[in-house]
Design a protein around this nucleic acid. Structure first.
Lengths: 324, 324
DNA sequence: CTTGACGGTGAAATCGATTTCTGCCATCGT
DNA sequence: ACGATGGCAGAAATCGATTTCACCGTCAAG
């Protein structure tokens, strides 16, 4: 753990000169060479902590996501990472587990660790970004909206996707279409459910109150919700599921009951992390997860580099893939 | 971004006293109260960077994994995270993409950012841990061995798993059993292949050289390798696949060719991230991914807290799940 | 009554890098 | 030949927290 002072002493120059060598300032060729040699000999690596303290800024960006076990978010993370790496930034991944308290802790860390910026898929509807914003740290919301803050965002059109998926189920002939969505306080959950409701309305179809279930965006939640639905006195003949993991859960239950699609119709928002030997009769709203990450990272890096335009919201296309 | 100095001024005490209030030293009740109030009013959060610089130590641990899109590693990450969180530590997840250069960069960051410790699933067989070790930073190897360093490790028995899986295939009546494993320079890949070879030897079965394929531990690699195998003049009648993602790829290819298990026998090391309506005829070596993470984190935290015993290697059970 | 210990406090040093500020020297233009 | 300009380099300030050191007062032990 040699410091800049030891390198300086070894090279017979001042610490300032060592710093200049590594930061591309004007240094005579000869001293520069001596410094580089000394650094080589001692195995010098500049201390990032000291550097960050002085510069009030680091080359690290935080990616805050609600569920690291969801392939959607890991794909997204890959997108962020690839862009960040290429620009010389490191990514630290923070998993909030859909818990606003954990999220707040990580945001706090990002701030007090002087990270360069944050890409946030919010765990709920009242993230507190004031401190970060006051500090001038750029933030990009991804997948889920910024909820009351006027900041950059990269999303897919949840409402339109929900509507299209539901319409597709209707086109396939299903009439009693239920909906399993995520937590009340998660924007994408409510929007997708809204899209579903809007589609039903537009088609002149009705829905019973108990055909809309708020679950937790996890496999188990989808499983339980689907059980509730099939055990209703008047069960639905199809279901729109608002994310990939709950889709898996719902399919598991249907498999147990021998009611796999197309016996019960199903449309899922997101891509199923599923391998099935025969193509499944499930309609998908396919999401550009990786691209979402790439776009968010691009936006963030632009901001970090001083881009000063008014905040943008970028909406990426999602693509309906009807079941065979 | 109020500092400790501003809090001190606001409370009419010295910065030293403010620090002592927040670090549980002796401070009179009255000043303590004034400081807390001032901190509250100003919205003071101690600057982690400054703190870390001074303490030469932070409450962050690095988790370095080769593939964030592999559910095995995300489960492992969850295990690490849960333990770390509970102990007041934060986890930063670093994805090396099986690339030793990226890995080196992240290890360097962990060191120069004064992180408390590292949990490493190595990307290859020559990770350079010298600098971290010199600095006294604890490191725990997980899933893959430490390769030449005498440090703590948490693993499953790859060789035994490979042997058991292969034996199970033989028990099911397959005779020409091939093997798809990972990169040459990844320990788990070579050990699993060794287990496979040992099983064949023990059974008096032989294998052609072209029945052992080194792929890349990814879906696509498994797909290509399986294609190579089925297109051989004398294709195998079963295959042992050394990780979960390649298992998916191999299954995809077999599905395309209408040769799904049990037409071709298959055993996979790891749990398949797969949902299949009817139970698949695939033998699994089930891995305690999350538990691996929990154990590694426990070990690391013990070291961080000064545990000074000689390094341990913990081998967790893996469980053979024969196909139906 | 003296000595010592101890609780409470502030001034100042410290962690390791960057960056002003300053001064030196050489080169250039007139 | 002389002031101006600019490259080069070191001393010292700075980022914001923690901690040593020194000092004061109080209280208990001798």
């Amino acid at each position: 753990m040699p410091t800049i002072y030891e390198v300086a002493a070894h090279a017979g120059v001042s610490p300032a000169t060592v710093s200049r060598v590594f930061n591309g300032q004007n240094v005579s060729a000869e001293k520069s060479k001596r410094v580089r040699e000394a650094a080589e000999v001692l195995g010098f690596t500049p201390n990032r902590v000291a550097r960050t303290l002085r510069l009030q800024n680091s080359e690290v960006i935080a990616l805050v996501i609600p569920d690291i076990e969801n392939p959607f978010f890991t794909s997204l993370a890959r997108g962020v990472e690839d862009v960040a790496q290429a620009a010389g930034y490191s990514v630290v991944l923070c998993n909030t587990d859909e818990d606003q308290a954990k999220e707040a802790r990580y945001l706090d860390i990002a701030l007090s660790a002087n990270m360069a910026g944050v890409i946030l898929a919010a765990a709920g509807d009242h993230s507190d970004l004031d401190a970060l914003i006051r500090r001038g740290r750029p933030i990009v919301a991804v997948d889920r909206g910024p909820h009351g803050y006027d900041i950059d965002a990269v999303m897919v059109d949840s409402r339109a996707g929900g509507r299209a998926a539901t319409q597709e189920l209707a086109r396939q002939g299903y009439r009693r279409i239920a909906c399993i969505t995520g937590p009340h306080d998660v924007e994408t959950a409510t929007l997708r459910a809204e899209g579903w409701r809007a589609a039903l309305l537009g088609l002149g179809l009705d829905h019973a109150d108990e055909h809309l279930i708020y679950a937790d965006f996890r496999i188990d939640g989808g499983h339980k919700a689907m059980r509730q639905l099939v055990e209703l006195p008047e069960p639905p003949d199809a279901v729109f599921v608002a994310n990939n993991l709950m889709g898996v859960g719902a399919l598991q239950l249907l498999a147990e009951r021998g009611m796999l699609p197309p016996v019960v119709g199903m449309a899922v928002f997101g891509d199923l992390p599923i391998f099935s030997p025969t193509p499944m009769a499930v309609t998908l709203v396919s999401l550009p997860a990786r691209h979402l990450g790439v776009t968010a990272a691009d936006l963030l890096l632009k901001r970090i580099n001083g881009d000063d335009q008014p905040p943008r919201t970028i909406v990426l296309r999602n693509q309906i893939v009807p079941s065979a």
